[in-house]
Amino acid sequence: MNSPTIGSLRVYGATLHYEVRGRGPLLLLIPGGTGGASSFDSIADDLAAEYTVATYDPRGMSRSTLDDPEAEQRVSEHADDAFRILGLLSPSEPARVFGASSGAIVAVHLLTAHPDRVARVVAHEPPLVEVLPDAAEHRALIARVKETFRTQGLMPAMVVFAAGLKKDGDTAEPAAEIKLPPQAAARAEQTMANLPYFVGRIVPSFMSYSPDTHRLEALSDRLVLACGEESRGELPYRPAAFLAEGLGTELRHFPGGHTGLTTHPAEFSELLRKALRV
C-alpha cells in the first residue's frame, strides 16, 4: 500500500483528518458505521490508479476531533464537512463521491445540497429508512436502541440494533466466522472505540433523516444506488431498492453484504470503478 498524503481541515465545530493518494479527477470516499479513512485501505490504492482518492475520518470518529465531544450530530453538518473537503481538493471541478452505509446518507445529502460540486454519487446501502412504507417500525427500533443504550449500555444496544437489521425470519447470529483481511482485523480496536459515539449519536440522527426525494428525482442521472448481493431482505438493502424503483433507475449489486468492500475488496473496487463512470 502506498503511503497517502495526510492533512487536517478545520471545519465548524471539528478538525477533520483526511488522506489523499493518486492523481486524476477527485474521488471522495465517505465511510460508514464506525469506520474512518482506514476502512478504505483495501481499495484506495487500486482506485488511485485512476483518481485522486480522498478519504477521511468523519467528525467525532478516530482522528477527527470535535470541539464539543457531547455535540449532537446532524447529516447536514457531516455533508458540509464533505463539501469543505471537495472545495479544498477540487475547487474548480465537480468530484465523484462514494458513500457506504451512514456515509452513503451523507453522500445523498451532499448531492441534493451541492449538486454543482458533484459529478456522480454511488451510495451503497444507505439506511434511509424514512423513505420506506413501514418507516414507523424503524423509528420504534431506533427508540429501542437509544433507550437500551441509556439504561443498559453499549453491547445490549448493539444486540437490539443488529436484530433490527436482519431479514425477516433470520435468527442466525451475526457472522463472526468471516475471516477478514489482516488490515481489517487490525482496525478492531479503533472500531470498538468509535462504537459508543456511533450508537449514541450517529444511528439516532442519521436513521431519522429523510432525503429530499423530489431533488433526488431531478438529480437521478448522477445517483447510483447500490446494495450487496448477500443483503437482500435486510433493512439496509431495502431503502436503496425502494428509491431505485421510485426513481426509475438501476439498482447495482456489489459482492458480499453490507460490508462487501471489506470482505471482497478486489471485486468491489472493480464494480465501483464502473459505477463511477459519468
Rank of each mutant, 00 (worst) to 15 (best):
I6M: 12
G153D: 08
D67L: 13
T5V: 15
P196N: 07
A218N: 08
S92Q: 09
L195R: 06
G99L: 05
L141Y: 01
R74H: 15
R96T: 10
V20S: 12
M155N: 07
R63Y: 01
A188L: 14
H214Y: 04
E125D: 12
T55S: 15
A140P: 12
V159F: 07
V160L: 12
G257L: 05
Y209G: 12
R74T: 14
C227R: 13
H124S: 12
L88D: 06
G256A: 10
D41V: 05
F98M: 07
M192V: 15
T171I: 06
A218Q: 13
F206N: 06
D46E: 15
F83P: 03
V108G: 13
G60F: 02
E137P: 10
A188W: 04
D134T: 06
V20N: 03
H214Q: 14
P69V: 05
R10G: 11
T65Y: 01
G13P: 10
L272I: 07
G257Q: 02
E234V: 00
A104R: 07
H17Y: 10
A104D: 05
G164T: 01
A240Q: 03
M61G: 08
G24C: 08
R201A: 15
A163H: 07
T34Y: 01
S38I: 06
R144N: 12
S231Q: 05
V118W: 01
P58G: 12
P174M: 11
